[in-house]
Computed example of a mutant assay.
Amino acid sequence: MAWVKWDQILLPYDYGGLNVSSLKLKNYSLLTKWWWRFLTNDNALWVRVIKSIYGQSGGLGCNSPLPATKMKIFSGRNWSQIINIDQTPSKLGCNLSNVFVKDVGSGLDTSFWNDIWIGDLPLKDAYSRLFRLEVFKDATISDRITITFDSPVFSWAWESQPTWRTEDELASLTNIIKLHKFSNNSKASWTWKHNSNGAFTTDSLMQVLTSLTAAKLPPSSATDLSPFVPKKVGIFIWRAKKNRLPVRVKLDRKGLDLHSTRCPVCDDDIETLHHSLISCKFASNIWDKVRRWWKFNQLHLTNLSDIASCSNPKLVTTLGVSIWQAVVWVTSYYLWIHRNNCTFGKNIDSAAKIFSDIQGKCFEWINCRWRKGALDWLSWITNPCRFDSIFTKNGIG
């Protein structure tokens, strides 16, 4: 039974996920690197072979390299699969044909109408009426434009004189070209839009696809994982914060036939996540023991978000808040373990035993993960707020 969307789990921590890298997006990024290699290695033997089969564009992007009848012959080839990888990124909003930008240089090896060199579409699609009037449909940029004193001079070849409809397109096209900045390079080159240095990397494409995936999911705050507890505890809190734990009320709503929806621990109320972790009599008893252990007047735990944030006005240092967060998270984790033991009839410990386990496990986990000092057990169980005496090597930082 799925409780959280898999796409949400795959997202990095900054997007509210669990930073499980997507093999699917990684595969797309690695295959896209072949696009970059094809575009930037004109003289390579394998590139010339691909062009001899699929045309000068190699079949990449929106240019059709072969007639449909011939395309079937090569549909099972490896390069055909590389051509078709554009479909999934395009669904996310990343059209690979538009993110590779071509610097045409002198324009000798760039098609004026068929290649994407200005705007997001080939000029044959953006100005279809003019393209129908073109005599030489494979004309290069140098055939149509000559740069003199930084100003383009046009050399058109029309089958018939443009009418009033196509004159508007022609005026629009010439204005766009006049605004285009032509480089002094003699040879065409390619740049990748999503990298400051213009070079393609698989990591940069992964970041783009990840951000586009996150944009299609409901907004979520960044995932907060405590440095003092194991990741399994952090993931438990992450699920609790999203209210995605299998309490009986949720199982009943999903259609499971349960003998009861009441709390398996106290049997006093319907089992919701708030009840299991906060308002249950047993949970309240544990939280009261934790409050007296830390010598707090009261605990600010009224809802699930308080468990995730773990704010307390008595704690003023970052280190103190982090350690208190670890204690709250471990306490919630042990309350859930106790709930599961009651549900499945396993060994049920007393409140005193669970509280002792919480103290011991917090001491063990924090001690193992705190690299700058060591916890003193006596200070830990008597007055954990005295951090200057808890850390025997280094005090509060």
Rank of each mutant, 00 (worst) to 15 (best):
L23Q: 11
Y127L: 11
L378G: 01
L315M: 13
T392N: 08
I116T: 14
T163F: 07
I237W: 11
N95H: 07
S309I: 07
V249A: 06
W36Q: 07
A351Y: 00
G373V: 09
A44I: 01
T140P: 01
Y15N: 11
D269Y: 05
S311Y: 10
F182G: 01
N95I: 03
L60V: 07
D168K: 15
K124M: 13
L133W: 06
S260P: 06
Q298R: 12
S279A: 12
S21Y: 02
I73Y: 08
N383R: 11
T223F: 00
A308H: 05
L39R: 12
S22G: 10
A188H: 12
V321S: 15
L225F: 13
N285K: 13
K281Y: 05
R262W: 02
K51Q: 10
S356T: 08
W370K: 12
A283Q: 11
G17D: 07
F282H: 11
F387D: 04
L96C: 01
C368W: 12
A68P: 03
N78C: 06
D125I: 13
S189P: 08
S211Y: 00
I177W: 13
R132W: 06
I9W: 01
K178F: 05
V290R: 06
W190M: 04
R129G: 13
N27E: 12
L130I: 10
I73N: 04
T272F: 01
L39A: 09
G198W: 09
T202I: 04
S221P: 03
L277A: 11
T69D: 06
F282Q: 10
P162A: 13
V47Q: 02
W293Y: 04
I396Q: 08
P67D: 10
P67H: 11
F131Q: 08
A214P: 07
L133Q: 03
D42K: 15
F355I: 02
A139V: 04
L212M: 09
V101H: 07
R144P: 00
I147S: 04
K281F: 09
I82E: 03
D252I: 04
D267N: 08
M1Y: 02
V104C: 15
D288T: 10
C62V: 11
T202K: 00
N63T: 11
V135Q: 08
L301G: 02
D257A: 14
S151K: 11
R339V: 05
E167G: 12
S322W: 05
C280M: 09
I358H: 10
I141P: 07
W370A: 14
L335T: 09
I50C: 01
A199H: 08
Y333H: 13
S186E: 13
W287M: 09
A171Q: 15
R37M: 12
S356M: 06
W158K: 06
I85D: 09
T318F: 13
W380Q: 05
V4E: 02
N95L: 04
G360I: 01
